[in-house]
Design a protein around this nucleic acid. Sequence first.
DNA 1: ATTTGTTTTTGATCTAGATCAAGTGCCGCC
DNA 2: GGCGGCACTTGATCTAGATCAAAAACAAAT
Lengths: 258, 258
Amino acid sequence: MEVLNQSTVISIESIRVACRHCTLSSLCLPMGLTPEDVERLDDIVKRARPLHRGDILFREGDRFRSLYVVKTGSLKTFAPSSEGGEQVLSFHLPGEIMGLDAIDKGEHACSASALETSAICEIPFGRLEELTAIIPSLQHQMYRLLSKEIGQDTDLLLLLGKKNAEERLAAFLLSFSQRLHKRGLSATDFHLSMSRHEIGNYLGLAVETVSRLFTRFQDDGLVRVERKHIELLDLQGLEEIVGGVGAGRRSPQCRQHT
Amino acid sequence: MEVLNQSTVISIESIRVACRHCTLSSLCLPMGLTPEDVERLDDIVKRARPLHRGDILFREGDRFRSLYVVKTGSLKTFAPSSEGGEQVLSFHLPGEIMGLDAIDKGEHACSASALETSAICEIPFGRLEELTAIIPSLQHQMYRLLSKEIGQDTDLLLLLGKKNAEERLAAFLLSFSQRLHKRGLSATDFHLSMSRHEIGNYLGLAVETVSRLFTRFQDDGLVRVERKHIELLDLQGLEEIVGGVGAGRRSPQCRQHT
DNA sequence: ATTTGTTTTTGATCTAGATCAAGTGCCGCC
DNA sequence: GGCGGCACTTGATCTAGATCAAAAACAAAT
């Protein structure tokens, strides 16, 4: 079985635990709510939905009813691209919300599947909307969340539009590192729950390129890679790569349409 | 002077016109509101802000105060990428809202500049939030708008991650065509207010590639191009290109990391 | 332990599209 | 109305990264 990021044991207790005791509340919807309001939010949240690797949370085309928050584990969302291929759109870590893109059309525009054993909170959107109408700070929180999602997409857009393979992978690793760190986990030593193939797909690169880059980063002393276990040895070095400034390494190349 | 898409004359009258008389109301925030609610929305909207080509509506880093809706004309948003370059993030046509990505951080994450003479409606976000709390259908509309923006970003992500140059430009032209059509303009005969350079930047292609593709599309009888004036001659042909299926043309190529 | 299938790595080639280099045409401007 | 500059086009070359091919490392099942 898989070594989970958080805890291999998902007890009944931890599933029953309410929003106000959730270690993720500072990243999630309850952020900034009064204890009473958290209680109200808690009332509409459905818990206990353990998924296993490969399980589908929702499918493209499914009627949209709920938003989902990752409690433990991780998931990916993906949409079919032309010719049967699929594009990985995002990876979701604990505290992150899925399904926001479905509000508009009333049906899910992408599918979500678990990358490892994962626990999910389900939030019926209709109920949430009623709640946001009477809890201004929750409404504000929702707007922020939606807006944040747009910002993240923008970042990825910039990545795919303007950065080369090296910069993309470095950015990916750093982003992962930061997100884990916010969740109280190590920023420099972690487990990638997705395959090289999924990373490549997400970054718009071929599997082989991803693999070669991992090797190169390791040779350069930037990371230590052992299958899915990653250790970031030189955060600054990675940041320099992302910055586009080759800094320590080559430079007269890789400019793109200015 | 430029030939505008809508009207070269922006009279005082047209600026004073309220949301309820606006031809764009079906695309904009008032969608689905009662006349009374439209009135209330109208009260908080500031109008009369004619911009000219190159004028900046807001800058990256500016404190976020308002959302902006294009009334006439068009704008682009862009963010600086590493090494001084900039990435064009989106083009905005009448009825489209700008600034949604700034809600989260409280400051604009990108800049917006006018591609031609344009009129803008400004909607102070604080006031709007108050209003959405008491008008459920407006709240819902806001959620939908934010969600839609996420969906659009996703589409562009798919474009940049999975499609080749030909597919990208075809998708761009068709998307433009559809958006203009929704606004009551011709779907097959229009004026591109942005430069080849900006198109290339948006699509992640070099100017030269864009130019060559226009030429090729024209040679293939798909479009007629005369500087910024575009005529789509074969919508289906363009759709086939986007679909990834070369259909009428070549085929054993262009697969990417499945 | 052996088999079977999957994921990852490594090497060799190929190509779409970037980059470099010249025009060419358009438009505003004094 | 001729000059200067910028947007666009066209052609020639170069290269990052895809694709092809194959071996190596694992993992799950028998």
